[in-house]
């Protein structure tokens, strides 16, 4: 245990927050999260359709204008609906999507826990 603690301390001490990603990486991150409306199974990042090429340009322009990631998402949702985001936002339509798997996890945990308690 001591060794474990020792290493943990080293790691925490040496830890630093990563430098902010540059614009280019941010653009990639955003376009990977956008779904292309022309070839509807690809992300904008992966797609080479005219629409995707223009959308990449729009995203990069918006970043240069100083918009944040969320602002860009909201801008695009306003234009194209929630569908365009690969990462579904938290709202009344998606609570179940996000929480159901976690509830199932907790449910499974309780069953196993009960079984183990009974063994004791």
């Amino acid at each position: 245990m001591k060794i474990l603690k020792f290493f943990l301390i080293i790691i925490i001490v040496f830890y630093f927050t990563p430098s902010n990603a540059n614009d280019y990486e941010l653009e990639n991150k955003i376009t990977k999260n956008l779904r292309c409306l022309v070839c509807q199974g690809q992300s904008v990042y992966d797609s080479d359709s005219e629409f995707a090429i223009s959308l990449k340009l729009v995203v990069s322009n918006k970043i240069k204008e100083g918009l944040s990631e969320d602002q860009i998402y909201n801008f695009l949702i306003e234009k194209y609906g929630d569908w365009i985001l690969y990462d579904p936002q938290f709202n009344k339509y998606t609570y179940l999507l996000w929480f159901l798997p976690l509830l199932i996890f907790l449910f499974g945990g309780t069953i196993i826990f009960k079984k183990l308690i009974r063994l004791k």
């Binding site: 990977k32 999260n33 779904r35 992300s43 609906g81 929630d82 569908w83 365009i84 985001l85 690969y86 990462d87 579904p88 339509y93 998606t94 179940l96 999507l97 159901l100 798997p101």
Partner: peptide, 24 residues
């Protein structure tokens, strides 16, 4: 499973269309 079929359910029940992709 939920990620794959949830959009179908949501679309039928509320006509809202969403995508569930890698980030999820």
């Amino acid at each position: 499973l939920i990620g794959t079929v949830y959009p179908i359910f949501l679309d039928v029940i509320s006509s809202e269309q969403i995508s569930v992709g890698p980030p999820f």
